[in-house]
Design a protein around this nucleic acid. Structure first.
Lengths: 222, 222
DNA sequence: CAAAGTTATTATGAATTCAAAATTCCATCC
DNA sequence: GGATGGAATTTTGAATTCATAATAACTTTG
């Protein structure tokens, strides 16, 4: 299943720039210094600039003609829009998953769900988030729609650098768990229509947006 | 509303390569000859290769390390997957449109719908398709979700080169028109949930896939 | 002292160059 | 005659170079 290592230099460079953005070393709106990064990565400007163009088309970077590259500003609206999109994609993934998923995969997800409930009961937030992600990734993978997976991972890359306030009210959390209960049931009944609806409405996205540190908001406009 | 002309050379070149692909001058799976295109466009290899990398990240082109670029093969499955995705995006657009759209815009779409009915009654297929597209674009635009628009246009770019058999059975056509009738009603009632559902199920996508010339199918594997 | 104009410096856009990999072509061998 | 091996050629990947646009620094002037 693992892809052939397409180790193009420009892709390597692009990933390292994404790391810098994610780590916050390059902050939102920052100018991206070509020369400096070239020295740092030990490459010439050619692959670095190729990387920047690809990152621009992926939405993480902005290119101003004759004025260089910048880390794309994340406004609150952009993040909300992105989460709406991801919700729609998850919804589709749910519908498709019900058509294609094997019983084995359902069993795997059922098991993850059990684990999720455990972490919920013992209030292990980090573990809960990890398993939650695994469940959603499992459903996405079960859609067997390559284009969907690609788009989803691109979108999630875009908002990766957003930091959320880690507090989760108990009411929200309980609702999220109930959603997950309904998901599993819909999945086991292979009720795609219902699973899709649940995933589109699933509040985890909205929750994350709601609890989002509003540091990313519009005040950063230089 | 019109964007500033970011006329980077690489983007210009990329668009021209897309034209060649769309026109069929570069066929599915064809190797893309760097040197030749450079001469043809009168540019050096640098912007051309930048363009190829961007096109690869957009999904129209495939990059094989040390073995050049090729026009990405479209399999039937890829096209189906893409239409599924576009349906999901239109569904989301419908939901969002109901939240954001102005009465003026609704009136415009209502008018287009009237025109659509006219073309249906007089069986003007080309005009029907044109107005159909305008309606869908209107709903997409009314979503006011930039990321959605960008992604949708990227997806539609990917499948642009598919040629459909232009026959449309009367039963299909009638169903499509009925869908449109329901769309308008949901939109005017601002019933996002319903409009979303209609757009996701709207058979125009499935129809197009069904009537797709299967020349794109897997037989092209070299 | 501030504003405007001018020059110097730096950064970007694109062409060119160079090294390495892949492909082609041809000779040789079985 | 087909397969194998090995130069010659072509193509790709990446660094370097060159021209131009943008920015910074510095005068000059009101």
């Amino acid at each position: 299943m693992s892809k052939i290592q397409h180790r193009n230099l420009y892709r390597e460079v692009a990933d390292r720039i994404l790391d810098l953005i994610e780590q916050g070393e390059l902050a939102s709106g920052d100018r991206i210094p070509e020369r400096e990064l070239c020295e740092r990565f030990g490459v010439s400007r050619t692959p670095l600039r190729e990387a920047l163009k690809v990152l621009a088309s992926e939405g993480s970077v902005e290119l101003l003609p004759n004025r260089g590259a910048r880390v794309r500003q994340l406004t609150l609206k952009m993040v909300k829009d992105t989460y709406d999109l991801m919700g729609a994609l998850e919804g589709l993934a749910g519908e498709l998953a019900c058509q294609h998923i094997t019983d084995e995969k359902i069993a795997e997800i059922r098991e993850l769900h059990g684990s999720l409930l455990g972490h919920y009961r013992s209030r292990e937030l980090a573990d809960y988030f990890r398993v939650n992600r695994q469940i959603h990734e499992g459903i996405l993978a079960a859609s067997h729609n390559e284009a969907l997976l690609e788009m989803y991972s691109n979108l999630s890359q875009r908002v990766k650098r957003v930091r959320y306030s880690k507090q989760m009210t108990d009411a929200f959390w309980q609702q999220a768990v109930e959603d997950h209960q309904a998901m599993i049931e819909a999945l086991e009944q292979r009720d795609g229509r219902r699973l899709g609806q649940i995933l589109r409405d699933h509040l985890s996205n909205k929750l994350e947006v709601a609890s989002m540190d509003d540091a990313i908001d519009d005040r950063q406009r230089a």
